[in-house]
Write a protein that binds this DNA or RNA. Structure first.
Lengths: 240, 240, 240, 240
DNA sequence: CATGAATGAGAGTTCATTCAT
DNA sequence: TATGAATGAACTCTCATTCAT
């Protein structure tokens, strides 16, 4: 891709300007041993820094220069390994998605009690999104950009498949055992889970200014998680 | 001397680059002619165009030039009326919030049946957010910018008060009449409403690529709205 | 935000507008070619051009564009090396001061005859200021800007120390040897020297229009220098 | 003159950017009685404000908008009365010059003792320049602009004539009475007076940062004035 | 006379990207 | 591989000046 500047993405993208001064240089990847020319490690270092940069500043607010400084490489290297900002963003997005996918694999769908399995899935989702806001911010950004990059990706569209499969498995079993209502649609239920686990992270700041307290406070999160589980289970449960 | 690229937000913001070519100049306010040299009208025209621009492209992706072209005014006029990009964004944000607030005021809280009143509130929220994605996008953008502008606003923090008051009134009456559980917390319940009404708009594109259908399709929205009402009422209802 | 027109000095500055047409692009540093991609040389070239630009046009009258053109570099390079117009001006000011300081160091303070040493110092000051009006203009400009930049400098305030030390040394010796009056104050005397050596350069144009001749003409300068030395020595000398 | 922007002055000018915030709106001419349409008074008010503005900010640093605000008229009026910025500057310059000229007329050249008359002239000059730095700043500015505007003026070139005439008269009488050296040249002596009375005002800020005290402090000025008189009279006096 | 909305031509600054070394 | 100097195209913001009302 050879597009100068923002021309890269045909239409939309999200960004946060500089503020370089106030962002305290990040945790900068550990300084590499000098002289080591380790292509794989360099690439990985750039990628990790980029994930943080894009999550924090959005696409157009992210700075190649800042990434190169934090990753302790020069600009040229970024272009060498990733081609351009657009493709670096794609790589960062895919890499971020991979993390949650891997996490979801740890779920034991075959748990004896479907309700317990469901609760576990809800809590995992809640915890994952709440613990590290980077992922949520990246998704928000991607949606503001109208999903253009996600569409280009060959891996992202499938990203939540495992989670969805787990959910379907659990739902079916619960319905067979008549502990769940039979007409619960997996997709719709997934959207409900996501909505309830996403909102306090995505809208953290506007909610905070409405309610005058921090929506990222651990104890609030703990109580909120219980409510979310409650809302969802009371909806799905037959009461049997 | 000079505030650097002065107009920037101190630290963070969200933006979507140009794409000028593909965005066909917007719907351009109707070409004025009789309204020439009309301060109020000009200011309003700029503001309306700005609301659309910021919602579509985010803060740093928005272009003063594009706004001035769409509003059919000289760039200088924007600075004349709003000072700088930042303050224009603030004005647009406040103006957007005002619209939803005004809409909420149309609710009849004293509806005889608390459950019906609650459903009305949920549906109004759902419809408002779904109908015009601009508001949702603006809020997403503001949260990606860590709420910096909302905090600067003297009006926004109080904007959702009326809605909350309505909700509290309804909840209290429902609890008194024992049709709602007694320990439902208004704040927490509001967050649940918001989460369920927000997610399919905010995550429209990533969800669409996951489930391969358009999450803005009218019929899907209709069904989804019923589910949302169902989830929330089945959680709150005593079954009495 | 952003310091609007951001790069500006906090409050005041002096400048001379364009006149680009009439100023024939300056003496443009010799077109580089071998020196391409030479950081040190490029920085130096920019600095030298900037010194001339600021001296001729004042701060706000100076144009980054004109500097970049004369230095035969891209505008971005100026920001790369100097950050902004303000800091470039600071660098130019410091660099200019350094030149006169270095020149002063060539003085032999331990000259046998204090009166001769004093004359040498006066003549050096006179010649330096008269020969190249750039320095005088830069200082005038800085004073019109109320010394804001000089105050920011960590080096300028100390720059005239050596000259003052030289003067003090000479004065003391002359007083000890009773060829100078004893109650001559070094600071006050320095101000007198400066005033007499400065005025025909700083007020060159208004004086010229008053007296209808060029105050920069070499023969006039020669005669004037003799008068200045005369005024100052007749004041300080005991007549012994 | 119809030149847009800085193109007005062919080449040079001096200016100080905004800093509007820190300059506390000046002493704003007394608010005129509403409804009064007094052309002469309006013109005069603009002129006075302009004199202050140009003295403080230099030519290109001065803002038509700021002048109109301080003079409590709108921009159009300035153009109505003065044509353009350039001609307003010329008017302000001439008006400033007129003030000092008028002041000088108060001198009694026919004072019995030539030395006393000379001292009076020196002190008047010293006091005038020290008391209100506006005049000095205006002259500095004009010289940085290479006297282009002064040359256009039909009155300025003659401005110091009266002072010069007074000086010549005094010098001649003193030389006739043999209290002054005979070969003192009026022009040269005038330049010396000016240099010694000008420097601590023109270079106030750079001198202050060199010597770490305020060169506008009343007691310092008093002592300095004595030195200046001393320097000049000890040079001119025959000692008879 | 008076107003201030509107214009247009810059000016300073930023940043993705390229390329000589 | 690696560096960072260099480029060029924007972008935000300013300001003298004009002109409809």
């Amino acid at each position: 891709m050879n597009a100068k500047r923002s021309g890269a993405l045909p239409d939309e993208d999200i960004g946060l300007p500089d503020g370089s001064a106030s962002t305290p240089a990040k945790a900068k990847a550990p300084r590499r041993s000098p002289g080591k020319r380790n292509a794989v490690a360099t690439r990985q270092r750039i990628l990790e820094v980029a994930m943080g940069e894009f999550a924090e500043h959005g696409y157009s607010g992210s700075r190649i220069e800042r990434i190169s400084a934090s990753a302790d490489v020069n600009v040229g290297m970024i272009y060498h390994y990733f081609g351009n900002k657009d493709d670096l963003y794609l790589a960062a997005l895919e890499s971020s998605y991979k993390i949650i996918r891997d996490r979801e694999q740890t779920l034991d769908v075959n748990e004896a009690d479907p309700m317990l399995a469901l609760k576990a899935l809800i809590e995992l989702t809640f915890d994952f999104l709440s613990t590290d806001p980077h992922f949520v911010r990246l998704i928000m950004n991607e949606n503001l950009m109208m999903g253009r990059t996600a569409q280009r990706s060959s891996t992202i569209p499938y990203m939540t498949r495992p989670l969805l499969e787990s959910l379907r498995t659990i739902l079916k079993r619960g319905q067979r055992e008549k502990v769940f209502h039979r007409n619960i649609d997996a997709e719709n239920f997934y959207v409900s889970i996501l909505g309830l686990c996403f909102i306090h992270v995505s809208n953290r700041y506007t909610l905070s200014s409405m309610f005058q307290h921090d929506f990222a406070a651990p104890d609030w999160l703990e109580r909120r998680k219980a409510v979310v589980v409650d809302v969802l289970t009371s909806y799905i449960a037959t009461g049997k």
